[in-house]
C-alpha cells in the first residue's frame, strides 16, 4: 500500500540544519494496522507529514522515495497531491477541536471533502433520487439572523401597541406570519444529495442522531464525538488508507478504548490500512499488528506486536518498555537517551 524508502527530511533553522529523518524505511501492506512509536522529537509525525508533503516551509524532503499503490509520489504535482490527501489517504490529528474549523458546522466541513473527492457519487445519487445536488431548495437563514428579525418585529409590535397605534404593527405581524408559513411550506422539501451523504458518513462512525450532529458546531460536541467526526471526515473521501496521528492522546482512557475499537472495526469492515502514530506502547499492543520504534529520526526496530514486547532486540526498545511504571515498587529504569533530535 504505502512504501517509504530511505526518507530524509531536514528543517532549516537559524541555528543550522535539523536532520529530522535520517533514512526511514517503512512498508505498510493492504489491510494492516501499523504502529509507529517513539518519544517527542523522534520524527514520527514528520514521517507522516513528509509522506503527504504537509511539511511547513522550513522543512524539506532531501532524499528517499515514497510509493503509494505502485505510484511514485515523491515528486508528484500539487494537484495530484490534493487528490491523494483525503481521497486516497485520510488523516486524523491529535487534537480534534483545533483540527476542526470552529466557525463551520459539521455538515459544511464534511460536505467540503465530499465535493472535492466524491463529486461524481453525489451527482449520481442526486439524479437517481431526483433531489438537488448540493443545496436543498429549502430556504434557511442562519438561526442568528432569524432570531434578530423576530426580536425586532416583536419589539416594534409592542412599541406600537403601547403607543395605541395597533394598525402600525400589522406589517410586522405579517412578517412573523410569513416566517412561520415558510417553515410550514418547506417541511416536505427533500434534503440534497450532499446532505444525505454527510449523514451517511456520520452514521458510519456510529454517531447517534446524525442529522442533529451535522447541523452543530464542533464546540457543541464532546471530545469523543469530535474525534468521531474527524474520523468521519477522514473516511468521507473513500480513502483506502488512514493515518492517525496520536488520535487518542487528548481523550480519557474509557473514551480512548471506544475510539480505538471504532478504528479497528472500520479497518476490518472496509479492509483499510491504518498507520497509527502514538507514544503509548499500550495502545500499540492493543490495536496494531506490526510496530516500528523510532528514535532520533531512524527506525531502530520493526517487528510484530507479539515479538516486540516478548523479545525486544534493541537497547532503546527495552529501556522504553521498562520505563513504563508497573505494579511493583522497584525503581524504574530510565533509558539513557540524551536529548532527542539531532542538529
Amino acid at each position: 500500500m504505502l512504501e517509504i524508502e530511505d526518507l530524509k527530511t531536514n528543517f532549516n533553522t537559524y541555528d543550522g540544519v535539523v536532520k529530522a529523518l535520517n533514512g526511514v524505511n517503512l512498508t505498510i501492506k493492504d489491510g494492516e494496522i501499523f504502529g509507529l512509536v517513539g518519544e517527542t522529537g523522534s520524527g514520527k509525525s514528520v514521517t507522516c507529514y513528509s509522506a503527504l508533503k504537509l511539511l511547513p516551509k522550513t522543512g524539506e524532503v532531501v532524499g528517499g522515495k515514497i510509493v503509494l499503490n505502485g505510484e511514485d509520489i515523491t515528486h508528484a504535482s500539487e494537484s495530484r497531491l490534493r487528490q491523494i490527501r483525503g481521497g486516497e489517504i485520510g488523516i486524523i490529528f491529535q487534537d480534534p477541536l483545533s483540527a476542526l474549523n470552529p466557525v463551520m458546522t459539521v455538515n459544511e466541513q464534511i460536505g467540503e471533502i465530499l465535493v472535492l473527492h466524491q463529486d461524481e457519487e453525489i451527482k449520481k445519487l442526486a439524479s437517481e433520487k431526483e433531489i438537488p445536488t448540493y443545496k436543498s431548495k429549502k430556504f434557511q437563514a442562519s438561526p442568528g439572523v432569524e432570531f434578530t428579525i423576530l426580536a425586532f418585529c416583536i419589539s416594534f409590535i409592542s412599541l406600537f401597541v403601547m403607543l395605541g397605534q395597533f394598525t402600525f404593527s400589522l406589517p410586522f405581524l405579517f412578517l412573523i406570519g410569513m416566517m412561520f408559513l415558510r417553515n410550514y411550506l418547506q417541511r416536505d422539501l427533500p434534503q440534497s444529495a450532499l446532505d444525505l451523504m454527510v449523514i451517511d458518513a456520520l452514521s458510519r462512525v456510529k454517531l447517534p442522531n446524525p442529522e442533529q450532529i451535522a447541523s452543530s458546531y464542533p464546540h457543541e460536541l464532546s471530545g469523543g464525538m469530535q474525534q468521531r467526526v474527524m474520523i468521519a471526515m477522514a473516511l468521507a473521501g473513500k480513502a483506502k488508507m488512514l493515518i492517525a496521528d496520536e488520535p487518542t492522546t487528548a481523550l480519557d482512557v474509557t473514551i480512548q478504548a471506544q475510539i480505538l475499537q471504532l478504528i479497528k472495526d472500520i479497518q476490518r469492515e472496509e479492509n483499510m490500512s491504518v498507520l497509527l502514530i502514538t507514544h503509548d506502547l499500550g495502545v500499540v499492543a492493543e490495536t496494531c499488528e506490526k510496530v516500528a520504534v523510532m528514535y532520533k529520526g531512524k527506525i531502530i526496530e520493526e517487528a510484530s506486536v507479539n515479538q516486540i514486547f516478548k523479545n525486544p532486540q534493541h537497547e532503546y526498545t527495552k529501556a522504553l518498555i521498562e520505563a513504563i511504571p508497573k505494579g511493583g515498587k522497584e525503581r524504574l529504569k530510565v533509558p539513557d537517551i540524551g536529548e532527542p533530535g539531532a542538529i
Binding site: S222, G224, T254, Q256, Q258, D280, V283, A285, E286, F309
Partner: peptide, 19 residues
C-alpha cells in the same frame, strides 16, 4: 480494563456512551 497494556490479556469491559 480500558487502560491499554501489553502485559497480560485482561478481560475487556467497554464503557459505552458519553459522559
Amino acid at each position: 480494563s480500558a487502560t491499554p497494556s501489553f502485559e497480560k490479556q485482561k478481560e475487556k469491559i467497554m464503557i459505552l456512551g458519553d459522559v
